[in-house]
Design a protein around this nucleic acid. Structure first.
Lengths: 316, 316
DNA sequence: GAGCGACATAACTCGATGTTATTGGTTCCA
DNA sequence: TGGAACCAATAACATCGAGTTATGTCGCTC
């Protein structure tokens, strides 16, 4: 496909020839186009010199198109409609009548935030298609970097080494969507289970069930604040499994509130706040410049508009 | 038909986006287009600012098209082909593979010069169509002025008030194609019919048959040179009628040689040169600038190449 | 971590493409 | 026939788009 744009033909020439055909005079064409009369006159002369073909001839005190001119004028409509198709498609993108968003989010979001987002998008921007893949924050950021997704919903703990704000230096931008606190999960019969807020120090001798690697890191940090190093007996990033392991008496655990939303808490386990408290924040990460892509900006707006109160999320 | 060219979309942007799609990098696109790398980089930025839509996003140390960019790239082919259709038509005109010439000529030429021209054009430029209308020189010039024809073949006598050279001041251009002398037509039995060159003074007492108004004017001028004022008994611009009137003894006449070509000279008339001699010249008149219109220039060339010797015409 | 490859930025040049003011030619009308 | 109105062409000028080279910054790779 050689796709050669004739450098001698430019849109302005076609526009002007067309206007002359419509108006019948150069002055009239200038009025149609919003130019001064000499502008059109000179442009025609330049075009004729480029093409080495007269486009108009003077007749009386007016002007008329030559054969070459009428040929150009005839083509103007075709060319204009090809351009209009292109600019119409761009306008559709700009006007959110179409567009595709490729989104990744961490597993817990898949069953909570993402469904809500998709539903809201379907209502507010029915023309925008959202493709979703599940990915842990580090993988999601990698996908963003390689361009295979447009938006990533991630989480981070304060002081996290892979805090999204670190990424912002590198062409990515992040916004915090929500914050939530973490809770401890205790077996129903645990001595501290009747306290409303559990002091972590009282759990220093328990066996702990840790979550994903970054959650485990956070657990270690919080326990260090409380003055002990937790003994980690199991690791799984499946929150439902964690709760059920606790209910089975295999240990205690710390989870973000959001993890509880999609998991039914079985009779054998109870959920308690703890002290020192700790929080997790949920972010939206995108390429720098995504703010200017309408479909991505719209998705961001909709995400910010979601209400997570009923899940213990605090909008930022 | 509103035919609105989106002023935000220009060919260069489409060309460049297309090149980026093909090359995958901005540097590569610049190479494809023969530009420097910053040229492409900056053009993309300007285009994005105009459209208020990102067209590319950086990914790693390279770049990839956004959705908007891919939309533009997809349209590039359509637009290029519409333009190529137009520039192809122009090239056809420039290359004489097509074109239309609107020609007028005086009556005598209709049966002599014009058929020869049409035949030659059909051979040398088969793509060029010639539309022909017959018109006396003044009318032909008027049609030229109002743009309803492109070329006019006219004649003039020396000193003619409507000599085509007078017109050249007014946006028209003329070239002399041929010159020819005029002859007298005498009845076969006329006393001077046996002379090879007839002295007009000897015809001062004849009754004259005049041709078209301008020919009549010329007759008066030549006879005045010969020292008399001719008695004009009839007027007709039909040369064949003139010859036959002479053959019938109604008078004598003066005709340009070309008028004899298409008319069989009946037994009752003879053709003689005369003294003082007089000449008529045959011109091609066109709008200033016709020289640059290929089809008209080609017609002019072919006309100049015609051989009129066998008709008594002298090429100029 | 050094080097290379690729894009961004800065500073500058130049020409295309406008502008206004004016001239020249045509038409029309008193 | 002379003048007013109209239209296009020309001249002189301003400006901005669109290139250029030189240089900076970032990311990948060895």
């Amino acid at each position: 496909m050689s796709l050669s744009f004739d450098p001698q033909l430019d849109l302005q020439t076609i526009r002007i020839v067309r206007a002359i055909a419509d108006a019948g005079t150069i002055t009239g064409a200038a009025r149609l186009l919003g130019y001064s009369q000499p502008a059109v006159s000179q442009h025609v002369q330049r075009a004729e010199a480029r093409l080495n073909l007269p486009l108009v001839t003077r007749v009386g005190r007016s002007v008329r198109l030559t054969e070459a001119g009428t040929v150009l004028a005839r083509h103007a409509l075709t060319i204009a409609s090809a351009l209009e198709a292109a600019s119409g498609d761009l306008a559709d993108l700009a006007g959110l009548r179409t567009g595709t968003v490729r989104l990744a989010a961490f597993p817990t979001a898949s069953s909570t935030i993402v469904p809500r987002l998709l539903a809201a998008m379907a209502v507010e921007h029915p023309g925008v298609r959202v493709n979703y893949v599940e990915a842990q924050p580090p993988e999601a950021v990698a996908m963003l970097r390689e361009g295979s997704i447009d938006l990533a919903i991630t989480f981070s703990y304060p002081g996290d080494r892979s805090d999204p704000h670190v990424d912002s230096a590198n062409g990515l931008g992040s916004e915090t969507l929500f914050t939530e606190d973490t809770v401890v999960v205790l077996p129903t019969g645990h001595p501290l289970a009747d306290q409303h807020v559990v002091d972590l120090a009282g759990l220093s001798d328990e066996r702990w069930i840790a979550g994903c690697p970054r959650c485990r890191g956070h657990l270690l940090a919080v326990c260090e604040l409380a003055g002990f190093a937790p003994a980690i007996a199991f690791e799984t990033d499946n929150a439902i499994a964690v709760i059920n392991m606790v209910a089975s008496g295999l240990g205690v655990a710390m989870l973000p509130r959001l993890a509880l939303v999609a998991a039914a808490v079985p009779p054998g386990a109870v959920i308690r706040s703890h002290t020192p408290a700790s929080a997790r924040s949920i972010h939206l990460i995108a390429n720098e410049g995504a703010r200017r892509v309408p479909s991505l900006a719209a998705t961001s707006r909709v995400l910010h508009g979601l209400d997570g109160n009923d899940w213990g999320l605090v909008a930022v």
